[in-house]
Amino acid sequence: MNGVSLHKKLEENAGLLIFGILFVSAIGGLVQVLPSLFQESLQTPGTLTRVYNAVELTGRDIYIREGCHVCHTQQIRPLVAEVERYGPYSRASEFVYDRPFLWGSKRTGPDLHRIGGKYTDLWHELHLLDPRSVVPESIMPAYPWLTTRMATETGNIQRKMKALAMLGHPYSEAEIEAAPARLEGVTEMQALIVYLQMLGTTLSPEDAAMDMSMAEGH
């Protein structure tokens, strides 16, 4: 059977055509995506990588709700300029408890993967309330509503932690039990800042040390 008559079969039989499209389009995913879902190195935490605690997790969900990832990446590339500007480049082992990943695709503002510890809590609060008061050139929106909303309103923290525990995040019963109490009296602003302050701080020292030698010059 030559190519033309083979194709004649495909285009005269709807069932075959559907199957053909499904088969041909699935190959890429099966060869490229499926194996990486089983790759150990992508799901093994680093020596210091840990799950987000109740406040951090709430802060992270506020970060998602407000769409911070739309303008800020969390992915430092292994390039000299990026390592100098932001800090050690991002490792897969740091993200194993990130559901969803928040690497972003656009850097309208700077990368935030190593923002933790770079500024004070007060700076972050001022910046989130009135970005141009601390960075005159900034085009970031202000987030005044975060100070009036409480972290307990962000969502049901116990259900969230239980869902994540189901997916394999090592939360203890006690941690989940104590979670609502940890959020008492915390504003959304504070929760978001707690999350920002821990971002990128769990890179193991060995990884941080080998950084500059690995980064590519460009």
Binding site: V33, S36, Q43, E94, V96, Y97, R99, A163, L167
Partner: peptide, 13 residues
């Protein structure tokens, strides 16, 4: 609100 079945680098892929 939901959490992705995939995490981190795998979620990205």
């Amino acid at each position: 609100k939901s959490y992705s079945l995939y995490a981190g680098a795998q979620d990205a892929i």
